[in-house]
């Protein structure tokens, strides 16, 4: 009973972070800031949901599988994010900044960036 309540809480918290991260993907201004939102989904969203399912299923082989998935996501997510950031930088996308102080003038620079889209 207690386990179910904890699982509920973890799943709902995970769902909250997932939707928030996805909302950030839509709302934030450029690819680098969107990466932070995507990282949120990968770490806390997936993490809390998988942890909730671990609590729900108790100690058995499903938990081992869930922990494997969780560990794999936590290891690969930063690498994929880093690869995206590096490719975007070398592809000519300038990071969005508030001031537009030569380090990039936001959306226009991003649209004109050398990336094929």
């Amino acid at each position: 009973m207690v386990a179910e309540v904890v699982a509920w809480a973890l799943l709902m918290a995970g769902a909250f972070f997932l939707v928030t991260g996805a909302l950030g993907m839509v709302r934030l201004p450029d690819v680098f800031t969107r990466m932070h939102a995507a990282g949120m989904t990968d770490t806390m969203g997936a993490g809390l949901i998988l942890a909730g399912m671990c609590v729900y299923s108790g100690a058995n082989f499903e938990t081992v599988r869930l922990l494997l998935i969780l560990g794999f996501l936590w290891f690969t997510s930063p690498i994929a994010t880093h690869a995206t950031a590096k490719a975007a930088l070398s592809g000519g996308v300038r990071p969005f900044t508030l001031a537009g102080d030569g380090s990039g003038d936001g959306r226009t620079a991003e649209r004109e960036g050398g990336a094929p889209s």
Partner: peptide, 15 residues
């Protein structure tokens, strides 16, 4: 270290 920085949202290591 770089992966830990990237894993915490709000900071992403780019190089």
């Amino acid at each position: 270290y770089a992966n830990s920085i990237t894993l915490t949202p709000g900071t992403v290591t780019t190089g």
